[in-house]
Every structure is written in structure tokens, then in C-alpha cells.
């Protein structure tokens, strides 16, 4: 039997407001992400990329459409908020533009907390957190507080946190925006390594066209419409073929 996809969306639509104030933020967005696949999502500001991530991340409910993660149908309007939150902590990892670390926890505790939330003992969660930080090259900064870390180090800790629950899907919203080009590329390559090593599907919203060669697949979003990237903007072999 074929391994389930990391993510499959179909007809995903998000409408804000109603009547003459109605805004369609996303229209019939469909996407398939295999395990171990790294997907870039391009598009100008206000195109609906973040809306797509919020719906896929089970944070905002879509107006229409379905989201299936790891073979499980999650967004069809039938799940409670508690169910969605539980699924999120067990199967999805998040990385955002700003490092978004919890300021009162050290680097290792920021990662450890995810493990404890999914029911691991404190010692097991801490060991796993240290392994991830070591693997991402920030193990020696484990006991530092977020304010004592550089932007690149913070982002690596965030990636480690996103991996702590061994998710089937990682969602990253402009994770390199606050980094210089070298650091930005390192983070993108880190995503690719993580995806290939852990079999995690990763969607990265980015404006950074310099690192697009890192991605397996590239999508574009404009005016709420999601489509495979055209050869005019990206190398043809990298566009979506699903």
C-alpha cells in the first residue's frame, strides 16, 4: 500500500466577511505534498499564502474545502478545536518569520516543551531536544535564553522545536526573512536535509528566489489562487507536477 501523503488539500477556500465586505482570501487551493518533499510557496504580499498556511496548520478553519494530513482528514468542519489542537501538537511543526521562541524558556526548554506536551517524560523530551539541537549545530547554546542567541541560532532552535514531535508536516512562513543571504540559504538547506532525513513534508512560504534550487516543488499564489510555478519565474524542472 502506498505511503499516505504528508498533505493533501482540495478546493480550499477562505472567505472573510460577507455581502459587499466579502473578501476571498483563498480560492480552491489544492496541493499535494509527499513525505520528504520540500515545497516552496511563492507570491506577493496579500496573495493568500499565510491564509493557506493557517488553514493547513489547522489554526483557521477554511470556508470550504478539505485538508488531509498524513492520510487523516482534518479540516472538513467536523473536528472540535480540541481535536485540531491535539493533532497540531502531535503531527505539525511550525517555523515563522520571527524566531517565535518562548522568551522565558532556554533553547533546550523551548524544544523540550513540545515533547512534554505530547506526553513524553521530562528526561526523554530533554534528551530528544538535545539531540535535535546538536544535530542543528546549536547544542552548545542549549542553556542560553532566546535573547542570548543570534537570529540564525534562534531560527535553528525554532526548527528543532518544529521537529521535536516528529511531525509529518512542517509549515514555515518566511523563515529566512530576518536572516542574511548566507544564513538564509543555510536554513533552507537545513529544511531539505530534515525533510529527506525524517521523511517530513515541508511547505516554505518565501520571497527569497536565490535559494529556490533547494526545493523539490514550487507553487505560486496570486490573488488567492494557488498554482504550480510557471517556468518564467522558476526553473521548469522545479515546478509542481502532481
Amino acid at each position: 500500500m502506498a505511503e499516505p501523503l504528508a498533505l493533501e488539500t482540495s478546493g480550499l477556500t477562505k472567505v472573510y466577511g460577507s455581502g459587499h465586505t466579502e473578501v476571498i482570501a483563498m480560492r480552491d487551493a489544492s496541493m499535494r505534498v509527499r513525505r520528504g518533499e520540500v515545497v516552496a510557496l511563492l507570491g506577493p504580499s496579500g496573495a493568500g499564502k499565510s491564509t493557506f498556511l493557517l488553514c493547513v496548520g489547522l489554526i483557521n478553519a477554511p470556508t470550504r474545502g478539505r485538508v488531509t494530513i498524513g492520510g487523516r482528514l482534518m479540516q472538513d468542519g467536523s473536528r472540535s478545536l480540541g481535536d485540531l489542537r491535539r493533532f497540531r501538537r502531535e503531527h505539525i511543526g511550525f517555523v515563522f518569520q520571527k524566531s517565535n521562541l518562548i522568551p522565558f524558556l532556554s533553547a533546550v526548554e523551548n524544544v523540550q516543551v513540545v515533547g512534554e506536551l505530547i506526553g513524553k517524560s521530562s528526561s526523554v523530551a530533554k534528551r530528544r531536544a538535545m539531540e535535535l539541537l546538536d544535530a542543528l549545530g546549536v547544542g552548545r547554546r542549549a542553556l542560553n535564553m532566546p535573547t542570548q542567541l543570534s537570529g540564525g541560532e534562534q531560527q535553528r532552535v525554532t526548527v528543532a522545536r518544529a521537529l521535536a514531535n516528529q511531525p509529518s508536516l512542517i509549515l514555515a512562513d518566511e523563515p529566512t526573512a530576518a536572516l542574511d543571504s548566507v544564513r538564509g540559504r543555510q536554513v533552507m538547506e537545513l529544511f531539505r536535509d530534515v525533510a529527506h532525513r525524517h521523511g517530513t513534508g515541508i511547505i516554505v512560504v518565501t520571497h527569497d528566489h536565490r535559494a529556490l534550487d533547494v526545493f523539490d516543488t514550487i507553487y505560486e499564489m496570486e490573488d488567492g489562487v494557488l498554482k504550480p510555478a510557471t517556468p518564467a519565474t522558476t526553473p521548469p524542472q522545479r515546478t509542481a507536477t502532481h
Binding site: 501538537r89 505539525i92 511550525f94 517565535n100 516543551v113
Partner: peptide, 17 residues
């Protein structure tokens, strides 16, 4: 702590936490 609380909710922390 509103931002860390939102973050905890984002990563799936239950309300009891």
C-alpha cells in the same frame, strides 16, 4: 505573556497547560 501563550496554543498546548 500573551504572545508566548498564543505560541503555546499554536504548538498545540492544551488549555489546561
Amino acid at each position: 505573556k500573551l504572545h508566548p501563550i498564543a505560541l503555546l496554543k499554536l504548538i498545540g498546548a492544551p488549555n489546561r497547560t
